[in-house]
């Protein structure tokens, strides 16, 4: 039982990391809390499904197409809507939340409800880890988490655009004086976040079905790990994912599966009371009062 808890806790944590990375990137760079993140994740799932089943594209075309389209959609959301309310935090939250709601409920309205909406697994096999059998797709999620995190680090440290991302994230005004186009970088960060959401959908959704409601769950879990880890901090996100991921598995195993849904919410509440800036967050840390 303990080995199983350790293995599945690790996998659950990796799923949280992969699902939340896109949300974290966008906030970390542009400061926009993209509440349409869960909707983009589901949109990518349905796009891939449609490309595979209706357009009969091979997977190697359908998957990149979904990632590119989702990224482009996120950039369009920024250019058309968010640019006008940039800097007005409440307006940004309302706008992204409304867009996310509209995307998800549009899918529901169009009849994307049912168990037939699934994505293929990459490898169809079970792998023994000690005395625990795990399906290969879950291990792929873990591998994806590592690859996506390493890629993000390399991108933001060794490419011109990545350095511009960091410049804007550190100080937007100073970055402007150095000729970095803040709006362009912010739109790119939205696109990057959207593309990451799409990649997450491609590796996580084959574990189950593409369901509209999952968009809301992804949003809540992403928000929970980002708030707990400290908004914008990748290290914090990973640490928080492991705390919440293991918290959920231990709760399900030893308390009852129906309690897992409150783990994320309790985590948000506790961190907001104890350390509002999050475990590794620098945002507003100086303004915190004890």
């Amino acid at each position: 039982m303990i080995t199983m808890t350790i293995v599945y806790g690790f996998i659950n944590s990796a799923i949280l990391v992969v699902a939340a990375l896109g949300f974290n990137i966008t906030f970390g760079i542009s400061g926009v809390a993209n509440f349409a993140h869960g909707a983009l994740y589901i949109a990518a799932g349905f796009l891939t499904y449609l490309c595979l089943t209706e357009l009969h594209f091979p997977y190697w075309i359908a998957a990149p197409a979904a990632v590119i389209i989702t990224g482009a959609l996120a950039a369009v959301i920024y250019r058309v809507v968010l640019l006008r309310v940039r800097g007005l935090v409440v307006s940004e939250v309302i706008a992204t939340f409304a867009i996310g709601l509209a995307i998800l409920e549009l899918f529901r309205f169009l009849g994307f409800v049912g168990f037939e909406f699934t994505l293929p697994v990459f490898v169809d096999a079970s792998v023994p880890l000690g005395n625990t059998l795990v399906d290969a797709q879950r291990l792929l999620v873990v591998a994806s988490g590592i690859v996506l995190t390493v890629f993000l680090w390399l991108f933001t440290h060794y490419t011109k655009t990545g350095l511009a991302f960091r410049g804007i994230a550190q100080d937007e005004r100073t970055a402007l004086t150095l000729g970095i186009n803040a709006d362009r970088v912010a739109a790119l960060s939205m696109a990057f976040g959207g593309a990451y959401a799409a990649v997450a959908a491609l590796v996580i959704l084959p574990l189950g079905t593409i369901a509209v409601n999952e968009g809301y769950d992804v949003m809540i879990n992403s928000l929970a790990v980002c708030i707990m880890g400290g908004l914008g901090s990748t290290g914090g996100l990973i640490a928080a994912s492991f705390l919440i991921g293991y918290g959920q598995i231990i709760t399900a195993t030893y308390l009852g599966t129906h309690w897992t849904m409150i783990v994320s919410l309790v985590a948000i509440l506790i961190i907001l009371i104890v350390k509002p800036s999050g475990l590794f967050g620098h945002q507003k840390e100086l303004e915190e009062r004890t």
Partner: peptide
């Protein structure tokens, strides 16, 4: 074992 609507992981 009770699962909330939308749950997608039954491993525990």
């Amino acid at each position: 074992e009770t699962f909330p609507v939308g749950a997608g992981d039954f491993a525990p």
